[in-house]
Nucleic acid binder design. Sequence first.
RNA 1: GAGGGCGUAGCUCAGUCGGUAGAGCAACGGCCUUUUAAGCCGUGGGUCCUGGGUUCGAGCCCCAGCGCCCUCACCA
Length: 505
Amino acid sequence: MPDDLLDARRRKLQNIVQLERDPYGRRFPDVVANDAIRARAEALNLSPGQTAEAERVTAAGRITLLRNMGKLAFLHIRDSRADLQIGVSKKAVSESDWAVLEQLDLGDIIGVTGAIGRTKTNEVTVWVNSLTILSKCRQIPPEKWHGLSDVDLRYRRRYVDLFTNPEVMKTFRDRIAIIDAIRDHLRKLGFLEVETPALQPIYGGAAARPFTTHHNTLDIELFLRISPELYLKRLLVGGMERVFEIARNFRNEGMSPRHNPEFTMLELYQAYGDLSDMMDVTEGMISSAIAQLDGRHERQFGDQTINYTAPFKRRTYGDLLREHAGVDLRDHNAVFEKAKSQHLLNKLAKDPNRAARASSAADLGIDQAIIANELFEATVEPYLIQPTFVTEYPAELCPLTRRKPDDPTLALRFELYVAGMELANAYTELNDPDIQRQTMSQHLQGEGDETMRVVDEDFLLALEYGMPPAGGLGVGIDRLVMLLTNSQSIRDVILFPLQRPSQNT
RNA sequence: GAGGGCGUAGCUCAGUCGGUAGAGCAACGGCCUUUUAAGCCGUGGGUCCUGGGUUCGAGCCCCAGCGCCCUCACCA
């Protein structure tokens, strides 16, 4: 039973009330951030044991360490950037303040004012002359040394994770910095940041199963967006030449270290641009993000070292397949036999016997390009460690994309791979409404699954008004943050990842 | 959805061959005015994930369930 632990804290809270002090505090102005106080101490050039009596500061934070020696106490308080040691001498504070100090626990939030100094052991310390409790912590914080490491608890109680594990706070501060840098970069390029519906009567722009919901007043079924694409393109029709949205997308699919049901995607469209512009934008954005962090273009991700110095490698799909799988994309038979020998057909055929008997893609009723792509994913993807733009995808894999003028079997698309992960995806967009209508309907037929899919007639109508030729780009923001912060799971870069609700908490 | 791993004190973790449930931190009482995972003396703290089963006896073995993690499947 943890009751005795909780009771002890509740008792101390009562003691504070009895001292006529408010255990939950109030406005506490002029707080200086811990790292700023440390910087000031640095600038003062104090020698060990010295205190700059005139350098008074106000500090506040959560107690992460508390050592009371009876008449002198050292505590560490933490804010979102740093820890700071404070020293409280019984002689230097009021009787009431000292009495409050004796009722403090790890996890309490306090505010102090005092002079900046250094201890004999050279630790920067604020020597307190007044102390205020700002919030009593009535739960038990995790252990000071190991912190909170149970991953389930870390996600369920992210607030505890954040204040006990500074590297977690750092990761999320970095996430914020990365997104800020991307916004700045795009605005400087003249992109307008827009917001489009997350509740959509017809979903589109990606092949994924949506979440469904219902609007009571209109009494209609709605879908949570799987992509903002079709709305952003409407804005191109409307005359916004450069638009972007940092959109939360929702996909009712499986979860993995690289997939969360809701995730953040940057999508942007640039009128009069194409694939090569999208490469420039991608490289520029990532460089800006890195500059906003520590500026290091060479970064660790797990046991890999990745170099983000632009320009990134550019390789064609066909070249990569030839290099890693040893087959020519156009040699359908070789592709088929190679895929068969690698046991890649079973899952496509959904029946091992049928896969074993088949001697061509047609036998399985599967498009040739699908088999090639299976081979690509198995043999090429794992080796795309350094940032690589993969270009010239087989057109069948991306029916909604404009084709290469001099070779209509290839699509004007690239995917950016880093560390074997798909990080970005870009196209020279299709703006011919007739071709778009045709490919959308074909795509529908190919999807014959249980999910409802409807051609978005209003989108096609918009195209008929005329959409400028454009480049389009999508970047998985969570994955980018994973890569730049060396986080192995998408859940480590999403503050509150989806967890099954638990009964106990 | 399939396979594998894990679940012991508030936290981080031990637990041997199936034989009385352990440590550190945290907590409680006491001492301590320069600590750095502070120190010293003393005390308390358990639904061993849940439910069955085997056994004289289960934290440990078996079955089922729950939760989490990983791999795969799903997924422009």
